[in-house]
Design a protein around this nucleic acid. Sequence first.
DNA 1: GAGAATATAAGTGTAATCACCTAGTAAATA
DNA 2: TATTTACTAGGTGATTACACTTATATTCTC
Lengths: 217, 217
Amino acid sequence: MEKIRILIAEDHKLIRETWTFILNNDSRFSVVASCSDSGEAVEIAAVRKPEVVLMDINMMPLNGFEATAKLATVSPESKVIGLSFYSEMLFVKKMFSAGAKGYITKNSSREEMYEAILAVHAGGLFVCEEIRAQGFDITLPPVNEPANAFSLTNKEIQISQCIRQGLRSKEIADKLNISIKTVEAHRHNILRKLQVKNSISLVSLMNSKNGYVKYSF
Amino acid sequence: MEKIRILIAEDHKLIRETWTFILNNDSRFSVVASCSDSGEAVEIAAVRKPEVVLMDINMMPLNGFEATAKLATVSPESKVIGLSFYSEMLFVKKMFSAGAKGYITKNSSREEMYEAILAVHAGGLFVCEEIRAQGFDITLPPVNEPANAFSLTNKEIQISQCIRQGLRSKEIADKLNISIKTVEAHRHNILRKLQVKNSISLVSLMNSKNGYVKYSF
DNA sequence: GAGAATATAAGTGTAATCACCTAGTAAATA
DNA sequence: TATTTACTAGGTGATTACACTTATATTCTC
């Protein structure tokens, strides 16, 4: 029996190393590579062609979405499993839209991670118990959410994540290599779309689970 | 050689289970219990008297601080190692003030976690490479921060709650019937005490799960 | 009573946010 | 092809936040 070849993309070294350890410790799995960045994961996947990719999207969900979509083109045989701390539906839906075959949260059990890997490797789809409990039905076709005034663009999502981290416009501009005026334009549009009066309210909205799901994307 | 008896307090099941697995997989360690809540960790420690406690303080730092302090009274023989995603000095200092013997971040390596457990079990102190790189010197005696450097007064708590709601200084002043300059003075003191750079970071800190108001920081 | 902590609030100045405007390019869509 | 949307980025001006200083009255504690 061939071992399932796995790539791990997870930004926290300790988590990455422990997962690598326990998966390599299991005769069914073999971690062929690991990295801390989702973009790097795409490059590695293009060369190593792992059968399963564990993609953490916690800190930079947008990068995770993009990377998943890119990965599907450079290595369509690799099945991506999304991993995050939260079970926000929009993240789950976005990941499946991007081509992911599975999604588990960090409240899943260790056995569920094994199950997920085996399921997607066998050509199936998998979501963890926590997300199923929230009514996510993997058998239903992806719903086309209507675009409305409350939906943010990818750039706006990315910038709102930066705002949430306490970054200033100047710092965001440097980080994303765009003009501070562009950042300010996006900020203004974000506040307008979500109908909040300032960045503090935006962060409060993002941090309130229901609010984030309901309004952010 | 007796195995080192370990208690794990970590709110994410997947992380908790993987750590339990790899530690139990090592002949030097034995995980005697694990829990998802720092308060529960105190109760367990009082009975099981673990030699080392891995205390995740990521999502609920304040609970983690209090639990560490309580743990030192109900089970002084247990050495606490703080664990978090971030290497914020405030958290590190707070944890050592509360009686922790070690601190590692989730950017540490797996070996560093082992080292930390062995070090505190042997009666020493330990901080991970990432925190040492930021200039934290464990050999120095604990700096006596000005008495209430980390504790907010009632007024400051009241005002920080208003900030959280997205209220501006002017609005807070009107609501509390005080001068806007007084509000600004309080805001400045709040940011200084909690060592955050702006109100957004303050709100993020407050919104980290149970918030801080309950525990008056 | 002396000292410390708290709450109050003024001044001064710098930096950041926010509102509103215009406007070009590129990509997707009708 | 024409239109829309997203992303870019400049200008202007008002408002707000933040840093730092000084100062007074009160309250609590040593």
